[in-house]
Design a protein around this nucleic acid. Structure first.
Length: 324
DNA sequence: AATTCGATCAACCGCTCCGAG
DNA sequence: ACTCGGAGCGGTTGATCGAAT
């Protein structure tokens, strides 16, 4: 695959010009950026500013395409780029915004200050899409979206609230009953900043989960940003064993079902789909079906993911809550 | 200890949009 | 109205690293 295959329409006639172009193409560097290149780019932008990336690349003496320079700057070198863990609040926001806008990563990224579209896209693909795949349903299917909106998101809110009320370090796990055994993090099990968390969790809950889904831009711009500190932006990424895996219906955590059931729950409104298409019975059937598949499937009793979520106890709770 | 496997993320690619000429 | 180049976006790839075997 040619690195410049999109130049097919370029009208370059004559072997001399072709040779010149070939030389230019050969000169272009690709792959990971070196420290020197980073320094050159930072230095140049500091003096001349952003924009006109192609000429910038040339003038700076970088043997890179303008595109490559732009990407490196926006996704990595930009001083306000925020690296490290994606917090629970950010995850919640991503889920909410994606449910509204779909794969409009840059638009979603605008509501997560310091986060890049690339980072959000990667998060979505590695975490969310992975689970859709494991659930054997399309990530764009109603079923999956409903699961996200009416199960995962309330669950995230619960965890955010739990984290907010738990001021001692590293106790979110105990508070929510979620296992952190699968986490690979060497620091806290949860990326949320527990000691310096000034997010208004009531705002998060009430604004994000209203059926109308009115999201305050303040949430994105103001509520999240101040929570960022170097401490919570450690090198560890989002724990793979968190958020979307072991906490849909965590074992021992009956309160989740109770809180979220359409009759008793505080998320009553959120569980009744605005469009009315969220049918607990249908989902229950799907869950049972999936559970059966996983239990006796070719994976030798189901994978970790499925067994975490839909064990017999969970099914029983669902049955109870939905009067089946 | 060596190998395999899966997760993550930086970087690239192709496409579309938009504004200038 | 049309062309062209720059910019941006979403999808995809591949290198790397840690966990599991």
């Amino acid at each position: 695959m040619s690195s410049n295959s999109n130049n097919g329409s370029m009208d370059m006639s004559g072997s001399e010009e072709d040779d010149q172009m070939n030389i230019m193409m050969e000169d272009l560097r690709r792959g990971p950026w070196t420290v020197e290149e980073d320094f050159t780019l930072i230095n140049y932008i500091a003096h001349h500013g952003e924009g006109r990336w192609n000429s910038l690349a040339r003038c700076a003496g970088l043997k890179r395409t303008g595109k490559s320079c732009r990407l490196r700057w926006l996704n990595y070198l930009r001083p306000d780029v925020r690296r490290g863990n994606i917090t629970l609040e950010e995850q919640l926001l991503i889920l909410e915004l994606h449910s509204r806008w779909g794969n409009r990563w840059s638009k979603i990224a605008q509501h997560l200050p310091g986060r890049t579209d690339n980072e959000i896209k990667n998060y979505w693909r590695t975490r969310v899409q992975k689970h859709a795949k494991q659930l054997k349903c399309d990530v764009n299917s109603k079923q999956f979206k409903d699961t996200m909106r009416y199960l995962w998101m309330p669950r995230l809110v619960e965890r955010i609230q739990a984290a907010a009320t738990t001021t001692t370090t590293n106790t979110a796990t105990a508070a929510t009953g979620c296992s952190s055994s699968s986490t690979t993090s060497t620091t806290n099990s949860y990326p949320i900043n527990q000691t310096n968390n000034n997010i208004d969790h009531n705002i998060v809950t009430s604004q994000l989960l209203l059926p109308q889904g009115n999201i305050s831009t303040n949430f994105g711009n103001t509520q999240i940003t101040p929570t960022y500190t170097p401490e919570n932006s450690s090198t560890t990424a989002v724990s793979p064993g968190s958020e979307l895996t072991d906490c849909y219906f965590p074992n021992q955590n009956q309160s989740f079902i109770q809180q979220n059931n359409p009759i008793h729950g505080e998320f009553t409104d959120t569980l009744i789909s605005p469009s009315g298409y969220f049918n607990p019975w249908i989902d229950y059937q799907a869950m049972v079906e999936q559970n059966n598949q996983w239990s006796d499937g070719g994976n030798g009793g189901g994978d970790d993911f499925s067994s975490d979520i839909w064990n017999a106890e969970d099914i029983w709770f669902l049955k109870q809550q939905f009067n089946m």
